[in-house]
């Protein structure tokens, strides 16, 4: 019981980036525990996924050829059977939307303690130490799980992708899927957030967050976008509130953007948002809270009240600030 089993993430024919990061996280644990690194890939084109997963350090890859797309009932059954067969000390899964949909059920069924959204893992003397954030990234905590076997999900982008070419043994794992226990049926997929504007094309984005406080105040940033020729985008709460359309949303569940300049106004910089804009050429942040995580990735910072700074900026470019 020193082995590690990581579970690959894929969607609509593509292995998702976090799959290779899982191999890195799992490889570190396998080294620390002195065990083997196993990877499981369930549904879809498992043979081609297995080839992509065969990186340095991977000992065995288990393919479950059942169905095309993710179904949590199939995943739970397959992983329960794999865990019974391999008895891995660690099961490591992604904290992706699909991970959220099966990992807690797998851990519950296997009666393993579960810790989600790890940003760091450390294993020594039988204790797994998980580093995770709380209170919207304001603090980090370490959570110890004293006794295995363990189940943990990792945050995307925190581990480097596994590299090199491995010589893993690829084997098909037969799961006798109980179809009666598959009680949800995926009917299809839909791309959302089309429409009049594509924020991922913009050179200059003025992006607005919770700090704008009220819908009426949007006029202020609309004016700024107008006088500077910028395109308006936003963080999630603005779209959740229905103040801007979904196609304006930057972040994990919205668009990935890489403009020359990203001007974040009243955006704290939650990890889901940062995932969608960190690759911008230049990031400028305006926020009242000097400790806001957005400043950690900003090139330029303005600690101040947007209701003072934005009107002054509009005037700088010869505009007349609206009274809000």
């Amino acid at each position: 019981m020193t082995d590690v089993l990581v579970v690959a993430d894929h969607r609509r024919g593509d292995l998702r980036d976090v799959s290779l990061e899982l191999l890195s996280a799992g490889g570190d644990l396998a080294d620390a525990a002195g065990g083997d690194l196993h990877a499981a890939v369930i549904s879809g084109n498992v043979e081609s996924f297995a080839e992509d997963l065969d990186r340095e350090g991977v000992d065995q890859i288990h393919t479950v050829a059942y169905g095309e797309e993710f179904n949590h009932d199939v995943y739970v059954q397959a992983l329960t059977a794999l865990a019974a067969d391999l008895a891995p000390e660690f099961i490591v899964v992604p904290n992706s939307v699909n991970g959220l949909d099966y990992a807690p059920a797998v851990a519950t069924r296997l009666d393993r303690p579960y810790v989600s959204d790890a940003v760091d893992l450390d294993y020594s003397e039988g204790t797994l130490e998980v580093t995770r954030e709380m209170y919207g990234s304001k603090v980090e905590t370490t959570v110890d799980v004293a006794e295995g076997p363990f189940a943990v999900s990792i945050r995307g982008g925190e581990w480097p992708p596994a590299e090199g070419i491995g010589d893993a043994e690829v084997s098909e794992f037969d799961v006798d899927v109980d179809e009666d226990a598959v009680r949800s049926n995926v009917k299809g997929f839909e791309e959302v957030g089309g429409g009049d504007v594509d924020i991922s094309d913009a050179e200059f984005l003025v992006s607005i967050g919770r700090g704008i406080e009220e819908e009426e105040n949007l006029e202020l940033v609309e004016k700024l976008a107008d006088v500077t020729g910028a395109t308006l985008s936003s963080s999630r709460p603005i779209v959740d509130n229905g103040w801007l359309a979904k196609n304006r949303q930057v972040g994990q569940s919205g668009k990935q953007v890489t403009p020359d300049v990203y001007l974040a106004i009243g955006i704290s910089g939650a990890v889901q948002h940062v995932a969608g804009m960190k690759a911008s050429e230049t990031i400028i942040a305006v926020n009242t809270d000097p400790n806001a995580p957005i400043f950690d990735i900003a090139d330029y910072g303005v600690v101040g009240d947007l209701f003072d700074v934005v009107p002054a900026l509009i005037e700088e470019f010869g505009g007349e600030p609206p009274s809000v």
Binding site: N98, K187, F189, E190, E191, Q252, S253, G254, Q256
Partner: peptide, 11 residues
């Protein structure tokens, strides 16, 4: 709601 503006329709 999946990542990247994709939604999965499920019964």
């Amino acid at each position: 709601e999946l990542e990247g503006g994709i939604e999965e329709l499920t019964d």
